[in-house]
Lab assay of single mutants.
Amino acid sequence: KYFGTAKARYDFCARDRSELSLKEGDIIKILNKKGQQGWWRGEIYGRVGWFPANYVEEDYS
């Protein structure tokens, strides 16, 4: 189950295995919004990890 999707506004390079690298334009499935302050958990291309919420724009459609 996921909470919708978000589109990456910027590139983000994961610093460890718990984080999710993003490329601008990627569409991420949002799995959890209750991580550390400002971090969401998501899935993209079969990978799961945490990413900074301010790097994405949530899709409300």
Results as ranks from 00 to 15, higher is better:
Lys1Gln: 15
Lys1Leu: 10
Lys1Cys: 07
Lys1Phe: 11
Lys1Met: 08
Tyr2Cys: 09
Tyr2Lys: 07
Tyr2Ser: 13
Phe3Ala: 07
Phe3Lys: 12
Gly4Gln: 11
Gly4Phe: 07
Gly4Ala: 11
Gly4Trp: 11
Thr5Lys: 06
Thr5Asn: 11
Thr5His: 12
Ala6Asp: 03
Lys7His: 09
Lys7Ala: 06
Lys7Ile: 09
Lys7Tyr: 11
Ala8Phe: 02
Ala8Met: 03
Ala8Gln: 00
Ala8Ser: 05
Arg9Gln: 08
Arg9Lys: 15
Arg9Ala: 08
Arg9Tyr: 02
Arg9Leu: 14
Arg9Ser: 07
Arg9Glu: 04
Tyr10Asn: 07
Tyr10Phe: 14
Tyr10Lys: 14
Tyr10Cys: 07
Asp11Lys: 07
Asp11Leu: 04
Asp11Glu: 11
Asp11Thr: 08
Asp11Arg: 08
Phe12Ser: 01
Phe12Gly: 00
Phe12Cys: 02
Phe12Tyr: 15
Cys13Pro: 10
Cys13Glu: 15
Cys13Thr: 15
Ala14Cys: 02
Ala14Glu: 01
Ala14Ser: 09
Arg15Thr: 10
Arg15Asp: 06
Arg15Gln: 09
Arg15His: 08
Asp16Ala: 09
Arg17Cys: 15
Arg17Lys: 15
Arg17Asn: 15
Ser18His: 12
Ser18Cys: 07
Leu20Cys: 00
Ser21His: 09
Leu22Tyr: 03
Leu22Pro: 00
Leu22Gln: 00
Leu22Val: 07
Leu22Trp: 01
Glu24Tyr: 09
Gly25His: 00
Gly25Pro: 04
Gly25Asn: 03
Asp26Trp: 02
Ile28Ser: 02
Ile28Val: 14
Ile28Phe: 02
Ile28Leu: 06
Lys29Ala: 09
Lys29Met: 12
Lys29Ser: 12
Lys29His: 12
Ile30Ser: 04
Ile30Glu: 01
Ile30Arg: 04
Ile30Pro: 02
Leu31Asp: 06
Leu31Phe: 06
Leu31Asn: 04
Leu31Met: 07
Leu31Glu: 04
Leu31Ile: 14
Asn32Ile: 07
Asn32Met: 09
Lys33Arg: 12
Lys33His: 03
Lys34Asn: 15
Lys34Cys: 11
Lys34Asp: 13
Lys34Ser: 13
Gly35Arg: 08
Gly35Pro: 09
Gly35Ser: 12
Gln36Gly: 10
Gln36Trp: 11
Gln36Leu: 13
Gln36Glu: 14
Gln36Lys: 15
Gln36His: 14
Gln36Asp: 12
Gln37Trp: 10
Gln37Leu: 12
Gln37Pro: 14
Gln37Glu: 14
Gly38Asn: 08
Gly38Arg: 05
Trp39Ser: 04
Trp39Phe: 07
Trp40Gly: 03
Trp40Glu: 01
Trp40Ile: 07
Trp40Pro: 01
Arg41Thr: 04
Arg41Gly: 03
Arg41His: 12
Arg41Gln: 15
Gly42Leu: 02
Gly42Pro: 01
Gly42Phe: 00
Gly42Gln: 00
Gly42Ile: 02
Glu43Ser: 11
Glu43Gln: 13
Ile44Glu: 00
Ile44His: 13
Ile44Tyr: 06
Ile44Cys: 14
Ile44Trp: 05
Ile44Gln: 05
Tyr45His: 15
Tyr45Val: 12
Gly46Ser: 07
Gly46Ala: 03
Gly46Met: 01
Gly46Lys: 05
Gly46Asn: 11
Gly46His: 04
Gly46Trp: 01
Arg47Val: 07
Val48Phe: 10
Val48Pro: 03
Val48Gln: 15
Val48Ala: 11
Gly49Thr: 05
Gly49Asn: 00
Gly49Lys: 01
Trp50Val: 06
Trp50Glu: 04
Trp50Ser: 04
Pro52Met: 07
Ala53Phe: 06
Ala53Arg: 11
Ala53Thr: 09
Asn54Ala: 14
Asn54Leu: 09
Asn54Phe: 06
Tyr55Pro: 01
Tyr55Asn: 09
Tyr55Gln: 06
Tyr55Cys: 15
Tyr55Asp: 03
Tyr55Ala: 15
Tyr55Ser: 10
Tyr55His: 09
Val56Tyr: 07
Val56Cys: 06
Glu57Tyr: 12
Glu57Ser: 13
Glu57His: 06
Glu57Asp: 10
Glu58Gln: 10
Glu58Cys: 10
Glu58Thr: 11
Asp59Lys: 15
Asp59Ser: 13
Asp59Ala: 10
Ser61Asn: 05
Ser61Lys: 10
Ser61Thr: 13
